[in-house]
Simulated assay, not measured.
Amino acid sequence: MAKRRRSSRSGNSRRTTVRRDASGHGWILVPPKSVRERSEDLDEVRTMIEEGEPDIAIDELRWLLEGSSEMIEAHFLLGKLAVEVDNDLPLARGHFGFGYQIGMKALRAEKSPQPVPALHPANRTFFDAGRGLAWTLDALGKKEMALEVVEHLLYCDPNDPLNLGTWIDEIKTAGQQIVDVGSLFGPTS
């Protein structure tokens, strides 16, 4: 008799998965057990950051990722620290991108369900990593890639509680004036 594959929805997977939220109206990302077991360590890292110890926090985050590379929040925090401490946009892009991709893989495995509420605590770091990725891509001159990330986040949560829709025009125009009001009325005589 053939062995039956264990469902990825069991919560024992080594990868991030997706399941319906308790209300049944949305979808949430479910980290693997290895990530859930390290939640207290992440609390300690946040305290280190708040107390102005970014170097120690960075070391701790790297150590945490050695034990579980699926830790979206660790990648988000490393990306954030890369920008804030060293202004290292390529490194920040890498960490934000890795965190974003963890969520994307889980969502693709379930055929991209929606909505994935951005404000749900289980989904928030995925959205934060995506926002960080879009921001760094834009800052690095990769506007099309930045737009793709923003548009996918908007697909995940069409209600747009994080106001990501405003980023689309900002990225496309790069802060340039969209309409010259004077030209609307023609020359004055």
Score class of each variant (00 low, 15 high):
residue 76 F to I: 11
residue 78 L to F: 07
residue 113 P to F: 05
residue 77 L to R: 14
residue 102 I to Q: 02
residue 80 K to G: 08
residue 71 M to T: 13
residue 94 G to C: 03
residue 78 L to Q: 06
residue 66 E to N: 10
residue 108 R to H: 06
residue 65 L to M: 12
residue 113 P to N: 08
residue 99 G to I: 01
residue 115 P to F: 03
residue 68 S to Y: 11
residue 72 I to M: 08
residue 117 P to I: 03
residue 79 G to K: 07
residue 107 L to A: 12
residue 117 P to E: 06
residue 82 A to M: 05
residue 83 V to E: 13
residue 96 F to N: 05
residue 90 P to K: 03
residue 115 P to Y: 02
residue 96 F to R: 01
residue 89 L to Y: 14
residue 123 N to G: 01
residue 122 A to S: 14
residue 105 K to E: 12
residue 65 L to G: 09
residue 105 K to H: 08
residue 99 G to R: 01
residue 120 H to R: 11
residue 79 G to L: 03
residue 84 E to L: 15
residue 68 S to V: 08
residue 119 L to A: 05
residue 117 P to N: 07
residue 118 A to G: 02
residue 93 R to G: 03
residue 94 G to T: 13
residue 105 K to W: 02
residue 93 R to F: 01
residue 84 E to P: 04
residue 100 Y to T: 04
residue 90 P to C: 06
residue 117 P to G: 04
residue 76 F to K: 07
residue 117 P to H: 06
residue 113 P to K: 10
residue 93 R to T: 13
residue 110 E to C: 09
residue 78 L to Y: 05
residue 88 D to Y: 04
residue 117 P to D: 07
residue 77 L to D: 13
residue 117 P to A: 05
residue 67 G to F: 10
residue 75 H to V: 04
residue 116 V to K: 06
residue 112 S to I: 12
residue 65 L to R: 11
residue 82 A to I: 04
residue 87 N to W: 14
residue 73 E to Q: 14
residue 122 A to G: 00
residue 108 R to F: 02
residue 81 L to Q: 03
residue 79 G to D: 10
residue 118 A to D: 00
residue 80 K to Y: 15
residue 114 Q to I: 00
residue 119 L to F: 00
residue 77 L to Y: 13
residue 101 Q to C: 00
residue 108 R to P: 00
residue 75 H to E: 08
residue 80 K to V: 04
residue 89 L to V: 11
residue 115 P to W: 02
residue 95 H to W: 12
residue 109 A to Y: 06
residue 89 L to S: 12
residue 108 R to I: 02
residue 71 M to F: 15
residue 67 G to C: 01
residue 116 V to E: 08
residue 79 G to W: 03
residue 106 A to L: 04
residue 85 V to I: 15
residue 116 V to A: 08
residue 96 F to G: 05
residue 99 G to P: 00
residue 104 M to K: 13
residue 100 Y to W: 14
residue 97 G to Y: 01
